[in-house]
Design a protein around this nucleic acid. Structure first.
Length: 910
RNA sequence: GGGCCGGUAGCUUAGCGGUAGAGCGCCUCCCUUACAAGGAGGAGGUCACAGGUUCGAUCCCUGUCCGGCCCACCA
C-alpha cells in the first residue's frame, strides 16, 4: 500500500541520478538535419556562491521550455556552463582571505591569487552544477559538456573576438574619463555604475578675481575637487557675468589663477549660474575642458587619495579632504552658503562603494557601428522580446550608446591579448614594486610610447626590433566582453563546428531585465558582428524574485531564501510549480513561502489521484484494452475538457507563457478530473462490466496530464507516470521521451460539455440546499427536478444517476411542471426548478430569506437585461448574437423568478 | 529631466471590450474506503480617481493621484 501523502525526497534522488546515468539530457547533432533544433544556452551563473531564488526561477523556466520542446519532437539542447564573474568573484575571494587570513590579494601576488581563484572555481562551480541538478534541470552535466567562460576553448573565442575587433579598428586604446572604483581599484563601464540619490549639501564658494576684487560665487557638491579646478564657466547669455568672461580668478586655498569662460551647457538658473570646472574629476567638466582646451589637473589618485595639491591636503583621503577644504574655506571667508541638497551618488555595482570619475588610459570598443544592426534586428523582429515592452529600453540604450570601456585593472579574467616589447615601448610600460619584492607591470601608456602587439600567446620576438623581451598587458577584459560571445563560444566559435552550424542561432534566451544592456544587447551586437547572425530569436524576460514585502532579497537585509531549503521542505516540484505559476511574463514575484504550500498540496493531489487509480488497476501490468471507448457522458466530457486544456497549454507555451499553461493544467486536474470525473467513475469501478472502460479513460487522461505537467514538475510526474505507463500503451521509458499531449479534435464534444454543465449546475444547487440546512450525507434526501422545458428535461433525465451520486441523494425524480411538494426547499438552476423535501428539517423563515435573496438577484438581472434590450442603439448596433444572449438571459431570469415566486407563495400559504 | 511597469476581494494576484476569477485567510458542515496537504457550501469587489471613445469599458484613449523600476554629465 502506498503512503497517503507524497514523499518527494527519495523520488527526487532516484531520478536526478537516473536521468544523468541514462544520459537522458544528452543532445547531439542529428544526421538528419530536417529535425529542428531547439536550443537554450544557460545564462551562466557567476561562480560567486550558492544559487538564489532568482536562479531557481530562471532555470526552472528554461527547464520547462527545454522539456516542453523535447516532448514536441525538437532536438532540444540546453547548454550548461558557469561564468568566471570577473570583479564579483575576485571580490568574494578578497573578502574570504581578508576574513580568514587577514591578507590582501597583493600579499599573495597575482599568480598565487589567481591560482586560488581557480581552486575556488572548481569548488563553487561544482556546487552550482549540483544545485541545478537538484532543481531537476534537464542539463547534461558530463564534464565535456559543461562550459566555463574562462576554459581553454572560450579563451580562444575571446581572443578571436578581440583580434577581429582590433583588426576592424573597433577596439582602440584611449585616454578618457572613466568610472573608477576606489575599492575594487579598477575602471568600470558606464552601465556598471549605479546611481543612488543621497542627501548632501550644496556649497557656495566665492572665488575672488586675480587682483583680489569682487569675483564670483560657484555652487558645488564636491568642494574637495576645487583644488583641481582649471576654470569657472558661465552661460554666455547670462548677463550677470558677461563682463567677467575672460577675466581671471584666484583659486582659494591655492596659488593658482584660472580663467572665467563661457559655455552653453551651463544652466544659468542652477545655483549661482557659475560652475567650477574640474576636467579631471567630472564628466561634464571634462567635456567643457575639451571644448576650451583647459588643462587637466588630477587631484584624486587611483586610491582615492589627494594628489597634486597643496602639502596640507596631499595624501588625504578624498572624503577627509572635503571636510578639510570646507573648514578652511569657511575660516578664510570664502564659504558663502551651505544648503541641503539631494544629489546622485555613483556607486560600484559590485561593491556599492562610491565611484570616482577619473581620466585614464583604457581599452575601448567603438559601439555605434555595432549597435546599428542590433537595433535593426529588434525592429524587424529577428529578435523578439517577451513581453514586448522590453524592446523599447533595449532600443533606447542602443540608440544612445557610448563606447565601451573593456579593460579592468583586476587579476581575475581574460588577460588582454596584447604584448609590448620592453625595448620599443620604453616609458610606456609603468612598473611598481610588488609586495614580494619583484617589480610588477601595473600600467600601460600609449601616450608615453607603448607599442601593442596583439597575440594570444607570447610572441617569440618583437615584430619591430626582434627583441625577445615581451610583456603582456596587465589588465583583464570586462567579464561581459566574454559573456557577449557566450551563445556561440559555447559551440566552439570561431571553429566551424558541427554544433555551431546546427545549433546557432539559438532559439531562446531566458534572463532577467537587470542585464538587458550589460548582456542581452551586447550578445546581439557580437552575434551579428562575429557569428554572422542574431544569437537567439526570442528573449524571455523574467522578473525579480522579491520578498513578500516587495523588497529585493539581499544578504544585508537578511531576507534571502535559499531555494534548496525550500525544496527540502516542500519538494522540488512544489517550489518549481509555485514559481512558475507566479511567473507572469515580465512581472516581479512577491515571494511568500505560503505560496509554495499551495503547490505542495497540488503535488499531493496528483499523487493521490494516481494512488487511487493504482488501487483500482489490475496488479499485473497487463495493458488495458485501448483505444479508448468513451461509453458515457462523463467519459465524453472529460476527454473533451482534457483535449481543450491540452490545446491551451500548448498555445501558452508557444506564447512564452508557462504560467498560463501551468495554471490551466492545475485547474483541470483538480477542479475537473478529481472533483467530478473521479467521483463519477467510482461506482463504475465496482462493476466488472464497466470497470475497464472507466479505467482506460482515467488512465489516459491522467497519464496525458502528467505528460503535460512534466515540464513544470518533472519528478512527481515521472514517478507516477512510470506506474501508469504499462496501461497506456506508451513505449517511452521516461516522460521526456514521450510526446507532449496534442489536441485530438475527434474527442472534442461540445454537446457533452453543455450536458455536463447542466448536471453540475443542478448538483451544485442541490448541494447548496443540503449545506444550508446542514443535511448530512447519512440522511438520505430526495430531490424532485421540475421544468417546463420538456426538451431540457429529456436531456437531463438520463443523467439522474450522476446527480444522485454527486449530491448524495437517495432518489431523484423529474417531471414537467411538478408542483412544489409540501415541506420542501427550492432552488433554481438553468431551466430547472429543484425541490428537496425536508419535512421536519426545513425552516420556513430561513427558506423565505434565502429565496427572497435569490429573487432580488434575479430582479437585478431582469432590470439590467430589460434596460439593454429597450435601448434602440443596442439593438441596432450590437452584434445579433449579443442581443440574442441577453434575450436568453432575460427569459431564464423570468422563468426562475416565476418558480421562486410560486415557492414563496406556497410557503406563505403554509 | 525622460521612459517603463503596476494600482482588481483582508493578503498575493489572473483576466484585459459583452453578467468580475483563483490561491491563501475567514465562516458553516463533513474524518464519505485517493487525498483533512482533503471534500461540500458560504460571506467578501461602484476592478485607484476624473474625463473621453463605444450600443456597451476592469479591459481602449487622455489626464490626475499613488507605488515600484530603468535611463540621464544639471554643477
Amino acid at each position: 500500500m502506498l503512503p497517503k501523502s507524497y514523499e518527494p525526497k527519495p523520488i527526487e534522488e532516484k531520478f536526478t541520478s537516473l536521468w544523468q546515468e541514462r544520459r537522458l539530457f544528452i543532445s547531439a547533432v542529428p544526421e538528419d538535419k530536417s529535425k529542428k533544433s531547439y536550443v537554450v544556452v544557460i545564462p551562466p551563473p557567476n561562480i560567486t556562491g550558492a544559487l538564489h531564488m532568482g536562479h531557481a526561477l530562471n532555470n526552472t523556466l528554461q527547464d520547462a521550455f527545454i522539456r516542453y520542446h523535447r516532448m514536441t519532437g525538437r532536438e532540444a539542447y540546453w547548454v550548461p556552463g558557469t561564468d568566471h564573474g570577473g570583479i564579483a568573484t575576485q571580490n568574494v575571494l578578497e573578502k574570504k582571505i581578508a576574513k580568514e587570513r587577514h591578507i590582501h590579494r597583493r600579499d599573495l601576488g597575482r599568480e598565487k591569487f589567481v591560482a586560488e581563484l581557480w581552486a575556488w572555481y572548481r569548488e563553487c562551480g561544482g556546487t552550482i552544477l549540483n544545485q541545478l541538478s537538484k532543481l531537476g534541470c534537464a542539463l547534461d552535466f558530463s564534464p565535456e559538456n559543461v562550459r566555463f567562460t574562462m576554459d581553454a576553448r572560450r579563451a580562444k573565442s575571446v581572443y578571436e573576438e578581440f583580434h577581429r575587433l582590433w583588426d576592424k579598428r573597433l577596439i582602440y586604446r584611449g585616454e578618457r574619463m572613466i568610472n573608477w572604483c576606489v575599492r575594487c581599484e579598477t575602471a568600470l563601464s558606464d552601465i556598471e555604475v549605479e546611481h543612488e540619490s543621497a542627501s548632501s549639501k550644496l556649497w557656495h564658494i566665492h572665488y575672488p578675481l586675480e587682483d583680489g576684487s569682487q569675483g564670483l560665487t560657484v555652487a558645488t557638491t564636491r568642494p574637495e575637487t576645487m583644488l583641481g579646478d582649471t576654470a569657472v564657466a558661465v552661460n554666455p547669455k547670462d548677463e550677470r557675468y558677461t563682463k567677467l568672461v575672460g577675466k581671471k580668478l584666484r583659486l582659494p586655498l591655492t596659488d593658482r589663477v584660472i580663467p572665467i569662460i563661457a559655455d552653453d551647457e551651463v544652466d544659468a538658473a542652477f545655483g549661482t549660474g557659475a560652475v567650477k570646472v574640474t576636467p579631471a574629476h567630472d564628466p561634464a567638466d571634462y567635456e567643457i575642458g575639451r571644448r576650451h582646451s583647459l588643462p587637466i589637473i588630477p587631484v584624486i589618485d587611483f586610491h582615492g587619495k589627494m594628489q597634486n595639491v597643496p602639502a596640507k591636503y596631499q595624501g588625504m583621503d578624498r572624503n577627509a579632504a572635503r571636510q578639510a577644504v570646507v573648514a578652511d574655506l569657511k575660516e578664510a571667508g570664502f564659504l558663502r552658503k551651505e544648503e541641503p541638497y539631494t544629489n546622485a551618488v555613483s556607486t560600484c555595482y559590485r561593491c556599492n562603494q562610491s565611484i570616482e570619475p577619473l581620466v585614464s588610459e583604457q581599452w575601448f570598443v567603438k559601439m555605434k557601428d555595432l549597435a546599428a544592426p542590433a537595433i535593426n534586428a529588434a525592429e524587424t523582429g529577428r529578435v523578439k522580446f517577451h513581453p514586448e515592452s522590453w524592446k523599447k529600453p533595449y532600443l533606447d540604450w542602443l540608440s544612445n550608446i557610448q563606447d565601451w570601456c573593456i579593460s579592468r585593472q583586476i587579476w581575475w579574467g581574460h588577460r588582454i591579448p596584447v604584448w609590448y616589447c620592453a625595448k620599443c615601448s620604453g616609458d610606456g610600460l609603468i612598473y611598481a614594486a610588488a609586495k614580494n619584492g619583484e617589480k610588477e607591470l601595473v600600467r600601460i601608456s600609449f601616450k608615453d610610447g607603448a607599442k601593442p602587439v596583439v597575440a594570444f600567446d607570447k610572441p617569440a620576438k618583437c615584430p619591430l626590433c626582434g627583441g625577445a623581451d615581451l610583456v603582456q598587458d596587465p589588465d583583464v577584459l570586462d567579464t561581459w566582453f566574454s559573456s557577449a560571445l557566450w551563445p556561440f563560444s559555447v559551440f566552439g566559435w570561431p571553429e566551424k563546428t558541427k554544433e555551431l552550424e546546427y545549433y546557432y542561432p539559438t532559439s531562446l534566451l531566458v534572463t532577467g531585465y537587470e542585464i538587458l544592456h550589460l548582456w542581452v544587447a551586447r550578445m546581439v551586437m557580437m552575434g551579428i558582428e562575429l557569428a554572422g547572425d542574431v544569437p537567439f530569436s526570442d528573449v524571455c524576460i523574467n522578473g525579480i524574485v522579491r520578498d513578500k514585502h516587495g523588497k529585493k532579497m539581499s544578504k544585508s537585509l537578511g531576507n534571502v531564501i535559499d531555494p534548496l531549503d525550500l525544496t527540502a521542505k516542500y519538494g522540488t516540484d512544489a517550489v518549481r510549480f509555485g514559481l512558475i505559476t507566479q511567473a507572469v511574463p515580465g512581472r516581479d514575484i512577491m515571494f511568500a513561502e505560503e505560496s509554495i504550500t499551495g503547490s505542495r498540496n497540488f503535488c499531493n493531489k496528483i499523487y493521490n489521484a494516481a494512488r487511487f487509480l493504482q488501487m483500482n488497476l489490475p496488479p499485473d501490468a497487463r495493458e488495458l484494452k485501448l483505444p479508448l471507448k468513451p461509453e458515457n457522458l462523463a467519459d465524453r466530457w472529460i476527454l473533451h475538457r482534457y483535449n481543450t486544456v491540452v490545446r491551451l497549454a500548448r498555445h501558452a507555451m508557444t506564447e512564452h507563457d508557462p504560467a498560463a499553461a501551468a495554471q490551466a493544467l492545475y485547474h483541470f486536474l483538480w477542479d475537473e478530473y478529481c472533483d467530478w470525473y473521479v467521483e463519477l467513475a467510482k461506482p463504475r469501478l465496482q462493476n466488472e462490466a464497466e470497470k475497464d472502460a472507466a479505467l482506460a479513460v482515467l488512465a489516459h487522461v491522467l497519464y496525458g496530464t502528467l505528460k503535460a505537467l512534466h515540464p513544470f514538475m518533472p519528478f512527481i510526474t515521472e514517478e507516477l507516470a512510470s506506474a501508469l505507463r504499462p496501461h497506456t500503451g506508451s513505449k517511452a521509458e521516461f516522460l521526456l521521451q514521450d510526446e507532449y499531449p496534442q489536441q485530438d479534435k475527434t474527442r472534442c464534444d461540445e454537446d457533452a460539455a453543455s450536458e455536463m454543465e447542466a448536471v453540475m449546475g443542478v448538483t451544485v444547487a442541490l448541494r447548496t440546499i443540503r449545506s444550508q440546512y446542514s443535511v448530512p450525507p447519512a440522511l438520505k434526501a430526495r430531490a424532485i427536478i421540475s421544468s417546463r422545458n420538456a426538451g431540457a428535461l429529456s436531456v437531463l433525465s438520463p443523467r439522474l444517476d450522476y446527480v444522485r451520486l454527486l449530491a448524495k441523494l437517495e432518489a431523484v425524480e423529474t417531471g414537467v411542471d411538478i408542483p412544489k411538494p409540501r415541506g420542501s426547499a427550492t432552488a433554481v438552476s438553468g431551466d430547472f426548478t429543484l425541490y428537496m423535501p425536508l419535512e421536519g428539517i426545513i425552516d420556513f423563515a430561513k427558506e423565505r430569506v434565502r429565496l427572497d435573496k435569490e429573487f432580488e438577484k434575479l430582479v437585478k438581472e431582469e432590470v439590467q437585461c430589460k434596460a439593454r434590450l429597450a435601448d434602440a442603439n443596442f439593438r441596432a448596433r450590437a452584434p445579433k448574437e449579443e442581443v440574442c444572449r441577453i434575450e436568453q438571459r432575460l427569459a431564464e431570469a423570468a422563468a426562475k423568478m416565476e418558480s421562486i415566486k410560486a415557492s414563496l407563495a406556497d410557503i406563505a400559504n403554509g
